[in-house]
Simulated assay, not measured.
Amino acid sequence: MNINEFLKEFQSEEIHYMSNPGNGGDALIAYGAFSLFKKNNLTIKIVERNDNLENKILFYAGGGNLNDLYTDCSQFIATHHLKAKKLIVLPHTVVGNDNLLKALNKNVYIICREKKSFEHVSKFTNLNVLLIEDLAFNINPFEDFKLKKTNSRLLYLLNYKTIISFLIKDFNKFKKILKSYKNHKILHAYREDSESSFEAPKNNIDISDIINMDGTMKDEKLVSMTTQGIFSFLNQFETIYTNRLHICIASALLNKNVYFYGNSYWKNESVYKHSIENKFPKVKWMGYEL
């Protein structure tokens, strides 16, 4: 089953959608979701975790939140699964959470974005589990954002709204972006947070952290701006080195040369094997050490 086949069931329903907070990479997932909702003529209402959602159809956004590092997704499920008409977790990586998974019923659907999560959740026969690719793979950057395949214009990325956002967040990061344009061929874009498996080099630009207009992922316009900004920035380079999953995905969709490293657990490798290895030959798996 693909995501469009799954979503057809909900075309006559109102979907109450809970966003998944995160970085610029999560914006690609959110953008993919918003685009799919429109494509499938779905009616969406953005909700908050503590809203009264009894007997509603609930979607929790895709991502990597259902693991021991974060609690947003697990808390939403725990709060609402007993009273929801249906609760669907869009394509996710799932780690642990055994007690929560045991407590769920057949009104809950956990969609996994790679096989290791799917095998883990499938052990719990009290709920529904599906295997569908990460929603970011549904983006076509050249069609969605009219990107040119070769584009070296700095101002294409840095429109005035983007500049203002960067200046407000962190002027030093903004200067780092400007300096990166001295070399248009190679980008090192490693993560610099708890999911990193190694220390990033000094010439690193963690673009998922730098370009992010809305960390809540609730504002569709800002999510779109973030996604376009990331694709536009990556499109300046020929080769990208990264352990950010969605920088890898975005770069692959742009047909770039990618050297893809592992994060602090198996998420990157599992998505690579399921969705990237046999579809994007210019992406090379590099393992867990720089």
Rank of each mutant, 00 (worst) to 15 (best):
L7C: 04
Q11D: 00
I15M: 07
S19I: 03
G22K: 05
D26N: 15
A30W: 06
A33Q: 10
A33R: 00
F34N: 13
L36A: 08
K45L: 07
D51A: 09
N52K: 14
E54Q: 12
E54L: 07
I57C: 06
A61E: 13
G62E: 03
F76A: 05
I77D: 05
K85D: 03
L87V: 10
N107V: 07
Y109P: 05
Y109G: 09
F118L: 12
E119G: 01
H120D: 07
V121I: 15
V121H: 12
S122F: 11
V129E: 02
D144R: 09
L147V: 07
K148M: 12
T150M: 00
Y156T: 12
I163G: 03
I163F: 13
F166D: 07
F171V: 11
F171R: 10
K176D: 04
I186R: 04
Y190R: 00
R191M: 08
E192N: 14
S194I: 14
P201I: 12
I205N: 03
I205Q: 02
I207Q: 02
D209A: 14
Q228N: 13
S232Y: 01
F233V: 08
Q236L: 04
F237N: 00
Y241I: 03
T242K: 00
H246E: 00
Y261S: 05
G262H: 06
K273G: 00
K273A: 13
K273Y: 08
V283L: 05
E289H: 14
